[in-house]
Structure formats: C-alpha cells, structure tokens
Write a protein that binds this DNA or RNA. Structure first.
Lengths: 131, 131
DNA sequence: CTAAGACTTCAACAAATATTGAAGTCAAGC
DNA sequence: GCTTGACTTCAATATTTGTTGAAGTCTTAG
C-alpha cells in the first residue's frame, strides 16, 4: 500500500493531465510553468512532466488569483514548496495566502465601513472648516 | 450647519482633487470615469467635475481591485449608488463587496485546507485504484 | 515500425489596466 | 484680458495574463 502510493506519486503527469486536473487550458499550464507557479522536469524528448501535486497547485493558484494575488506573487509563495509537498508544507502556504488575503479584505472593509457608518466622514469632512 | 453641508457637498471636484483624495494618478481618475466607476458632469468648457463622494469611491475601488474585483464589476456595483450616496446606500454596496470577496476567499481556503488536512487527497487520490 | 495524436517553441493577437506625450483648450488670478 | 497651469482628446506604449496558430518533434498503441 505504501508501495502503491509511492508508485502513484511518481507517475508523471503531462501538460494535458495537469490542465484537466487543475481545470485550466493546456496553454495556461505552460504559462504557469514559465512563470514559476509550477515546476516540470523534461523527458529525453524535451516534453514537460509534472508530479502529482501540480494539478492541485494550479487549482489553488487560480483561486488565489481570484482573491487578488498576481501570478508573480503566487509563484513566490509556491517557491517554498519542496519537491513532494507534505501537509505541513501546505499549511505554511495556506497560512500565507489566507492571512494576506484577509488583510486586504480588512482594508476594504474598513474603507467601506467608514462610509457606511459616517457617510459624512467621507463626503463632508472638509465641511466643518468651511462655515 | 445644514446649509454649510449642502454648500460643501456641491463644491465640485476636479480630476486632480479626486486623484489626490483617492490616492491615484489623474490618468486613473479619467480611466475610472470612462469605465463607469465614477461619474462626472462637465463644465461649459468640457472639463470633468466630480461630487464629494468621488474620492471615496476611488479609494474603495482601488481596495476592491486588490481583493480580486475587476473594474467592470466595481462599476456595475457602483451603478446602484444614487447621486448623493447616503450611509444606507453605502451599506448595500459594502455588503455586496464584502460578501462576494469572502465567498471567493472561502473557496481558496477550502482548496488549500483540503491539501493541508489531506495532502494525499490531492496527491494520491487515484492511487487507491492502482494496486 | 509506423501513424496518430500530443507535445515543443515561437510569434502574433487579445483584453484589462493603466501611463505618457502631443496638440490644443479652459479657468483663474493679477 | 492675459498668462499660466490644469484640463481636454487621442494615439502610442507598457504590463499582466493568457490564447491561437504554424511548423516541427516525440510518444505510444497497434
């Protein structure tokens, strides 16, 4: 069973495999590899081969983009992942992504709350000195 | 005092005013207006003039972009704002922005948590059928 | 071994989000 | 009423995030 896992983990994925698992186009998989979001080895014939976690990384990357991370930022965060990422490795990545996104969301919340609670703070804050 | 507010509220802002208040370049203010994020009236000489809330809207728009909203989405949401937005108007905008951003953040959280809690779910989920 | 299908690179295109510069017009203070 | 600085539009440029197509190579099932 452990043997099966190892065997499966080593079965290398093609661009198409990763694209399907990650829910993106093959061109996007190549784009992500070019920009360091995912990493590939090459066959003797120069074709990309990915490990089992690549599809997941693509999924996470897509969702991270939708909360405002750039591809560059995601690539930088994913640099920390070792070859065969373990749960604790993903825990660190997760913490960074979520904490950073929440920080930005809080900034937005603060800004809209300022106007929700005191429209006059925003609309009329110079009015007080005008009289 | 009410008179002062009205007078102040009607003092129209130039592109530069809004840019400074919103913390962006004048070119960005024109861009936002072209794309419906903010609304302008024109002087007899064709220059843009904004009302008092434009600077705030720019601030909120910038922060919304950083949590993943596109300019188009922000423009659509801001369409709902009446001419002189009141606190309850901002409350609706706020709810939409925050709720939508939180929904996306939750999707990301779910995805990374799946890997954090069960790396094997992601890496080895076909392994079980391989033996 | 071969044919089909997937892969490679490279260049062109595209949409979103702006910025910059040119050429000309407006507004405001003196 | 003139001058100066800010404004106008338009076109070009830049970056990000990809997609598409051409021309050619690799892999693999049969």
């Amino acid at each position: 069973m452990t043997t099966t896992q190892i065997v499966e983990a080593k079965r290398l994925r093609t661009v198409r495999d990763v694209a399907e698992e990650g829910g993106v186009a093959p061109s996007a998989v190549r784009f992500y590899e070019q920009h360091g979001v995912i990493t590939a080895v090459r066959t003797s014939g120069n074709q990309r081969r990915f490990d089992a976690s690549a599809g997941c990384q693509v999924k996470v990357a897509k969702l991270a983009q939708r909360v405002g991370f750039t591809v560059r930022e995601i690539a930088e965060i994913f640099q920390e992942l070792p070859e065969n990422p373990q749960p604790q490795d993903w825990a660190r990545i997760s913490d960074q992504l979520i904490a950073s996104a929440e920080r930005r969301l809080k900034e937005l919340t603060r800004a809209v709350d300022a106007m929700r609670a005191g429209g006059r703070l925003c609309e009329l804050n110079e009015a007080l000195t005008a009289e």
